[in-house]
Design a protein around this nucleic acid. Structure first.
Lengths: 157, 157
DNA sequence: CTTCTTGCAAAATTTTTGCATTACA
DNA sequence: TGTAATGCAAAAATTTTGCAAGAAG
């Protein structure tokens, strides 16, 4: 079992535990969505992309079910919701253990790269404290041009 | 003439110049909106707040006019548009000269404080370069709890 | 069995646009 | 006077919800 598989299993279990604790059910639909979402070969997906992928497994799944399932996942912490600028698009990514990161988004091709920088995090804490705040969470997105050889304009679905 | 007044005048002129350059008109409505927006005793305002303030000057002003005017201001760089998390609310603030800053938002009372940190900026450039990106712009928001004595829950309009 | 979930469609938001009329330069 | 702007109301685009029928434990 690879590390990725272990992590997938952990997230799925965390989701299931949450449902049980809340007296909710781990239905076929939620299983399908969780499986494809945690597999996450590509990290950031919209509700419509998740819906399309889910319908491959079960054609009858509706948008509302995916919407509500992702909300549950976000609530219980196994998924992160991102609303990047310059698109009204909401994207989700699995909340992998110990993998806090922020994002660099290419303004041209939309490519999303993750970064983590302890120095920035530390400065951020310090800045907040100086202003009399206690950091709860943050959003740090860098919009940039990338040097990918295949970088070209790609409209978002 | 105070510094603030000079800056207000500069932004207003920049907006007017832009309109002239584009063959557009500096109408009464745009003047009213620009004046109240650049006055900006409080920095971040929603379209509805701007609309209400504009209607004090001219009752007939409609939402669409404010919407389109703020879009023009954003396009020409005299206004910045922010979509903070946890509220679907879009807020605008004047783009004051040499006043780049990011935001700390209190999760409880909604208070917004501005900060600027050269160290963070530098690290950000460095991180992006390391990943093969050239920074164009960024969004850095810290969500936190504040220590204001009057901090209390305030739903956003 | 009872409760929760689903899927549809409709409602609620928010953002954007078309168009006839008015105002500006 | 011709072009652009306004204000209304309607269209789009999203997000969210109500509800009857179906699944889960």
């Amino acid at each position: 079992m690879s590390d990725a598989e272990i992590e997938t299993a952990r997230l799925k279990e965390q989701f299931r535990d949450f449902l049980v604790a809340e007296g909710l059910k781990f239905t076929r639909q939620r299983r399908v969505i969780a499986d494809l979402f945690f597999k996450a070969d590509e990290g950031h997906r919209s509700l419509n992309e998740l819906l399309a992928a889910a319908q491959v497994e079960q054609a009858s799944i509706g948008y509302a079910t995916v919407y509500r399932t992702m909300k549950l996942m976000t609530d219980c912490g196994v998924a992160l919701e991102h609303k990047f600028a310059d698109t009204g698009l909401t994207l989700f990514e699995p909340n992998l253990e110990g993998d806090h990161h922020d994002h660099i988004i290419c303004l041209t091709c939309g490519r999303i790269v993750e970064f983590e920088d302890a120095g920035i995090e530390a400065l951020q804490e310090s800045v907040a404290r100086r202003h009399g705040f206690e950091v709860r969470k943050h959003r740090h997105e860098i919009y940039a041009d990338c040097v990918a050889p295949d970088c070209e304009y790609r409209p978002v679905a």
